[in-house]
Design a protein around this nucleic acid. Structure first.
Lengths: 217, 217, 217, 217
DNA sequence: AATGAATGAGCTTTCATTCAT
DNA sequence: CATGAATGAAAGCTCATTCAT
C-alpha cells in the first residue's frame, strides 16, 4: 500500500474542480469564445479537453450547464469579489485628488480585464441570449457592486470633488470610457501595439477634468 | 371599385424587396436578436414571417445569407451613409464651441441608434462570430468613416479647440461615452424611463470640459 | 385577319408534339443521361428547355411521366419499328451466306444505336429501376421482336447455315458481341477513334466462323 | 456457461468492419440495387440495417461515401485481385487448346459474378453517374487488368492459337459473349432455370471456333 | 470513473407540384 | 396556354445526450 496513484484530489474546498473538470471548462470557454455557445458542439469541447464525449456530461448535465458553470463561478468567485475588493481598496485609500482616484480605478480594471479576457468575452457575447446569465449580472453587478459605487460617488460629490450629476451618470461615464478602451484593446484589435500607460493617463486626464466640479472655473 | 386587389406591387424600383422578402428579413432580424443567429431555426423565421419553410430560401440561398443580407444592406445603405452624411453635416457647420459640436454629434447618433436598434443589436452580437460581418465593419467604418473623423479632430486640435491627445483616443472617448449610454439606454434597460435631453447634456458637459485644451486654465 | 400567328400546330398525327413539348423532352433526356432520372430536378429540365418550371407539368403530370413519355414513344415509335423493319429487311433478303446475313444485321444495328444514343443510354440506365420501363422492354422486345428473331434463326439452322444450338443462345451471342462493341464504342469511350468498318468485319468474321455449323470441318 | 454474451467482438484484424458496419453496408447495397443510389434515402438504409438514422453516418460521413465505400473495397479487394488471380491461374496453366483456355476463363468469371451479383449490379448501374466510380474502374480494370489480358492474347496469337485481330477486339468479344450471358442470367432473368454447363459449352464452342486462326480451314 | 457507440429529434436545404395571375 | 412564386414533405446530416461496458 505504498500510496496509490495520486489520483482523486477529491473536493477539498480549496479547489473543487478536478483536473479533468478544469480542462473541460477551459476547453468550453475557448470554443465558446471562438464560435459562440450555440454553434459549439459538445464533442468539439470534449476533443479539445482531451476527454471522451460522455465525460463532459459527468460534470455538467447539459451543455448549458457548461456555460453557466463556466461563467457563473468565474463570475462569482473572481469577477464580483475581485471588482469589489479592488474597488474597495481604491475607495478606502484617501485619494487627495479626483485624478488619483480615477487612475487607481482604471488601473485595477485593466488588470482585471486582462486576466479574465476569455470569460468576459463569452459573458458579453452570451448574456443577451441567456436569462440565466442576465440574472448573474443582475445579482453580481447591479445588486451588489452598483450601490457601493453610487454611494462612493455621492460621497465624492458631497466633498465637492465631483461634478453634480446623477451618480449613475457619472459612474456610467467612467465605466464607458474605460470599457470603450478595453473593448478595442482586448477584443477588437488585441494584436495592435498598445501603450496602456499613455492611454490610461489620457483617460484620467479627460475624465478628471470632465468630471471635476464645474465651479472649478 | 377601381383597382382590384392591390397584390403584386411588382418591382417598382423604390424598394427592390418584395413584400414577402421584407417580412422574411424582418422576422429573421427579430429572431436573431432574441436568440442569436446560430440558435435560430429557419423554420422559426418562416413561421414568424408567415411563409412556408421553403419560401425563405427563395430569397436567400442559405441561412447565413439571411444574416449578411439583412445586416449588410442596412449597413451599407443606412449605417455608413447616414453616419457619414450626418457627421458631415455636423462637421461642416461652423461650430463656435466644442460643446455645440459634441452636442450635435451625439444628437445625431442617438437618433440613428434608435432607428436601427434591432439591426445594430444583431450586428454587435454576431460580428465576433462571422468574418463576413467583420469585413463589413472594416469596410464601412474603419476604412471610410474613421479617416474622416480623425481628420476632423486634427483640424479642431489645430484650431486649439481640442486637447492635444492622439486623435484616435479623442474619438474613442467620445464614441465610448455615447456608446455606453446607448447600450444601457436601448439594450440593457430599454424599459426604464430615460431623459435623453438631460443625459445628452451631461455627456456634452463632461466631454466638453474633458476634451477642452488643457491650457484653458 | 390574314392568318393568325403560326402558333398551335395542333395535334395532327404527323407530329403530335408541340415545339415546346419537344424541347422539354429533349432537355429531359439530356439531363437524365447525364445525371440519372432521380438526381435530376424538374427545374433543371425546365431551365434547359427554356420554359418555366410549371410548363413542364402541362405536358407531363409527373416527373416520371417525363421519363416514360420520353422513352416509351421513342421506344415504340423508333426502337421497335426500326428494329423490326430493319431486321425484317435483312431477314427477307436472300442471304447466300451466314456472313452476309450477320454483316447486314450488325450494320443496321450500329446505325440504329448511333441515331438513338441518348435514349438508349437512359433506357439502359433506368430500366432496372422502373417497372414501367421493364414492361416496355417486355412488350417491345421480348414479346414482339424475340419470336421473329428466333423463328428466323431456326430457319437458318434448318437450312444448315447455323450451328445447332438453342436459337436463343445463338441470338444472344450475336447480340452480345454487337452490344459489347456498341457499349464501348458509344458509351464508355465515345471519344476514341473507331474504325467501325474493321470492327464490324471482325465481328462478322468471328461470329461467322463461330456460328457456322460444326460439320464445316 | 462460460463466456458471457458474445457481444463486442472488437477489432480482430480479420475484418476491419464492425458487425453493425457490415449490416449498414449490406443494407445500402441492397437498396441501391433495388432503387438506385439517388432514389435511396439514408433512413431507408438505416431501417433495413436495423440501426438508427444517425448511426449510418458514424461509419460513412456522407451517403456517397456509402456507395464508394461499398463498391470500392469490394472492388479492390475482390474484383481486381480475384480477377487477376483467377485469370493468372488460368493463363499460367498450359492450355493445350484454345477451348480449354476459354472454358477455364469463363468458368472463373461465372463464379465470380455469381458471388458478387449485387455489388456488380450497383457498380454497373451507378458508374456512369459517378466520376469516383469511373476512376475505380479505370484504376482496377483499365490500368491493371487490361494490359495483362492483352499481353496474354498476343502471346496466344504468336503461338498461332488465336486469330490475328487486334488483341483488344479479341478480348472484347470474349468478354462480350460472357457478359451478355451473365447479364441475362443474373440480372434480367435470374429466376429462369439455367443450364450453365450447356451455355458455357456453347460459348466455348462458338468462341473457340470463331477465334481460332483462320488458316485452320 | 470514464468511455465512445448509439440514438433520434431537429436542423438546413431541396424539389416536385400547384395555382393565381 | 404559360408563368414562376409559393408550398410543404422529405432528404441528408448533426449533435446533445444516454448507457453498457
Amino acid at each position: 500500500m505504498v500510496g496509490k496513484k495520486d489520483k482523486k484530489p477529491k473536493k477539498d474546498k480549496t479547489g473543487p474542480l478536478t483536473d479533468k473538470q478544469r480542462r473541460v471548462l477551459d476547453a468550453a470557454m475557448e470554443v465558446f469564445a471562438e464560435q459562440g455557445f450555440s454553434a459549439t458542439s459538445t464533442s468539439e469541447i470534449a476533443k479539445r479537453a482531451g476527454v471522451a464525449a460522455g465525460t463532459v456530461f459527468r460534470f455538467y448535465k447539459t451543455k448549458k450547464d457548461l456555460l453557466v458553470g463556466a461563467v457563473a463561478p468565474l463570475f462569482k468567485r473572481f469577477v464580483a469579489p475581485s471588482l469589489v475588493r479592488e474597488f474597495g481598496k481604491v475607495l478606502q485609500a484617501d485619494h487627495a485628488t479626483l485624478e488619483s482616484f480615477i487612475g487607481a480605478v482604471l488601473q485595477d480594471w485593466l488588470e482585471f480585464v486582462q486576466k479574465n479576457r476569455r470569460v468576459i468575452r463569452v459573458a458579453l457575447q452570451e448574456t443577451p441570449l441567456h436569462p440565466e446569465l442576465r440574472a448573474l449580472w443582475q445579482e453580481s453587478i447591479m445588486d451588489q457592486l452598483r450601490p457601493m459605487v453610487l454611494d462612493q460617488i455621492e460621497g465624492l460629490q458631497d466633498r465637492g470633488l465631483v461634478v453634480v450629476l446623477p451618480p449613475e451618470t457619472v459612474a456610467r461615464m467612467m465605466a464607458s470610457v474605460f470599457a470603450g478602451y478595453a473593448m478595442q484593446r482586448f477584443f477588437v484589435e488585441p494584436d495592435r501595439e498598445w501603450d496602456d500607460g499613455a492611454e490610461l493617463a489620457a483617460m484620467v486626464d479627460v475624465l478628471g477634468r470632465g468630471l471635476a466640479p464645474r465651479e472649478a472655473a
